[in-house]
């Protein structure tokens, strides 16, 4: 997957060079001049009150890939993402069904948005997975997996209201030192799995203002579904 990205970059750079010297020519990848590409702009808007979203992770893949399922154990990559906001393991999954991936460069604050673009050879089935941690929680994340974008024509877009999932890998104790976001500045990923060890919808946070005196969270960190809006637009 990384090699694919590098190759794409090179052919893009070559194309630019040729254009700048006045030699107009069709620019495709080196090994398949006729390959048609599909490119998708993925925009996430954070709708929460006070839950920054960790840098977005986006995957483009075929129909055989699911990054999580309700009742299924979180993968190691998902656990690292959901507990600490680090998406590097999640997007470096080298499964054959992955076409390409992208990562945001910074967290997406409440009210903010970020856009990633993923591009791959056009295929009959193309699906998107998107994931990001709610950083002022123990292991809450939002996203979608297996969103089918195969039928999008160039210029068309679709949107989804994103729910909140619980990775089930870290107990929702809300204790000081366990939450990586600005509410605490505590620990992110910890390999110990001390919760139910399956993915489900998140029950929400309790907070110190709602009678849980040990919680490091306050009322502003509460949330409801949906936590974010996802817009996918095919641009090529």
């Amino acid at each position: 997957m990384k090699q694919f990205n590098i190759r794409t970059l090179k052919s893009g750079a070559l194309c630019l060079m040729l254009a700048s010297t006045g030699l107009l020519t069709a620019c495709g990848s080196d090994d398949d001049k006729d390959a048609e590409m599909a490119s998708f702009e993925i925009t996430v808007t954070n709708l929460s009150a006070n839950q920054p979203l960790s840098p977005l992770a986006a995957l483009l893949h075929d129909a055989d890939y699911k990054a999580w399922s309700i009742g299924g154990m979180a993968s190691d990559g998902l656990e690292v993402l959901a507990e600490g906001g680090d998406n590097s393991t999640f997007i470096s999954d080298d499964a054959a069904m992955l076409m390409t991936s992208a990562s945001g460069s910074a967290p997406v604050g409440p009210g903010g948005s970020d856009t990633l673009t993923v591009t791959a050879d056009l295929a009959s089935v193309m699906q998107i997975t998107l994931a990001s941690m709610l950083v002022n929680t123990n292991d809450a994340f939002t996203g979608t997996t297996g969103l089918d974008v195969s039928d999008l024509a160039v210029g068309e877009s679709m949107n989804q209201a994103l729910p909140i999932y619980d990775a089930g890998t870290e107990a929702n104790d809300e204790m000081a030192g366990t939450i990586p976001g600005p509410a605490d500045g505590g620990e992110g990923f910890n390999a110990v799995r001390d919760d139910v060890d399956f993915v489900a919808r998140h029950p929400g946070v309790v907070t110190q203002n709602d009678g849980y005196s040990s919680s490091v969270l306050d009322e502003s960190h509460r949330f409801d579904s949906p936590i974010a809006r996802l817009v996918v637009k095919r641009v090529q």
């Binding site: 909140i164 107990a171 929702n172 104790d173 809300e174 919808r201 998140h202 029950p203 929400g204 309790v206 709602d210 009678g211 849980y212 409801d224 579904s225």
Partner: peptide
């Protein structure tokens, strides 16, 4: 409160 709350849908 840490386990038995929920958000819709269930």
């Amino acid at each position: 409160s840490r386990i038995h709350r929920w958000l819709n849908p269930v």
